[in-house]
Write a protein that binds this DNA or RNA. Structure first.
Lengths: 132, 132
DNA sequence: CAGCATCCAAAAGGATACTG
DNA sequence: CAGTATCCTTTTGGATGCTG
């Protein structure tokens, strides 16, 4: 983990490690677990979506963050952006094959989340009661 | 999704939805996907860890954020904090059963991450070349 | 050792106004 | 419609110094 600090980061296929802040794995993790990343990816599992649809579906996101996060996901090759040449413009966002694979891998976590949020809220209440 | 806005949020078991910013599912999602949440949970899958061990293992985290995120995870019932009454103090952090279940559900995602970070970096390079 | 408190810098994020 | 640009606020986070 502390080996060869003198050479620029390169052979991350072998030595990669999300615990290392210089490793691309860490950067990608940060992108996906960014505040709106998982929610946008989850929304797109329902199929192709337009900007306004995503904006309406994901409660609380601003246009700025939606646009910003979508650009990042497109750059990462997880989402495609397709402009239909009509007026007014119509833009469709869709998962790539890579993005599909990612959402499949996220499914167990999302399932867990829905099934255990109740447990967590209970734990929070218990904790707040005990500590206060 | 927009039903009964006049009553305080309550029946989230049935209507829960991470896309709703008022839903506990969303809050829990934010906790887990907070900047250091996944990394700390992943680190603890290797077994019980002391504060300094976590600090050393997770590159780039400050003591403040480590302590802050650990407190949140303890409150959420995902991690236990045990103080051994010796001097100097020794504190062990460990996954609870709930936390274990969570990390199991995160495993497919982490596996995907390691296997596909290369693809994402390639997509980024392609994108940067094309757009610039 | 395991932290908390404080202060400060940086980044994230929201509101608004505007454009092709 | 689907954004971008700007400004501003809030949050995040790091560095430092201190304690039981």
């Amino acid at each position: 983990m502390t080996a060869s600090p003198q050479v620029p980061y390169r052979v991350w296929q072998d030595t990669s490690d999300a615990f290392n802040s210089d490793c691309p794995v860490r950067e990608v993790l940060d992108h996906i677990t960014s505040r709106w990343g998982v929610l946008i990816l989850a929304a797109l599992t329902r199929g192709s979506m337009r900007f306004a649809e995503l904006h309406k579906m994901i409660d609380g996101i601003s246009e700025k963050m939606l646009s910003q996060t979508l650009r990042m996901l497109v750059r990462d090759g997880l989402v495609t952006r397709t402009v239909e040449p009509v007026t007014p413009p119509r833009v469709r966002y869709e998962l790539t094959e890579l993005g599909e694979g990612l959402t499949v891998s996220l499914q167990p976590f999302l399932d867990w989340l829905y099934r255990h949020t109740a447990d967590i809220v209970m734990a929070q209440n218990r904790h707040d009661r005990d500590v206060t």
